[in-house]
Design a protein around this nucleic acid. Sequence first.
DNA 1: TCAGTGATTAGG
DNA 2: CTAATCACTGAG
Length: 176
Amino acid sequence: MAGTTSRLEADFFKRDVLEVAPDLLGKLLVRRLDDGRMVFARITEVEAYRGTEDLACHASRGLTPRTEVMFGPGGYLYVYLIYGMYWMLNFVTGEKDIPQAVLIRGTDAVNGPGRLTRYFDIGGDFYGECLWNSQRLWLEDLRQQVRIETGPRIGVEYAGEYWASRPWRFLASPDA
DNA sequence: TCAGTGATTAGG
DNA sequence: CTAATCACTGAG
């Protein structure tokens, strides 16, 4: 029914990252702050990182303390610090032992992965958080149709031309 | 165009 | 232990 929403559950995330990533566009990211205030935004831009063979994916260098959560089942948060300043928000997807994640790059409220975590007050303490039963961060399906564009991922030239050119960046088109 | 910033990782 | 690297941002 129009106007209804529902929280995204485990099954949504336990699919291949190339299915989950575009499906995240238009979904509502919901954050309940410690003081009870709520922060919302619709997801408008994401990137897929897919398995040990993907040289742009942190898991391509094996299981380490940082990448451990990616080797578990989908539905959990992979959060890490970059350039000593910015927390990156990722959702783990797929099956256990097949490391995949979606980087949340932009929303209709704030763009840029580092600015987004600041806006939502998300830091390293969210590493490993479960998205389907968290009381402080979750996703809701607004059941809105979204037009999708694709392009190469940002800032992964180091992975070589093949992986840097995969069209695994997904954006919600402005007109739809 | 480029510095800031510090965790993470591989390598002695 | 050291040192390079980094899925970024904002100032100029």
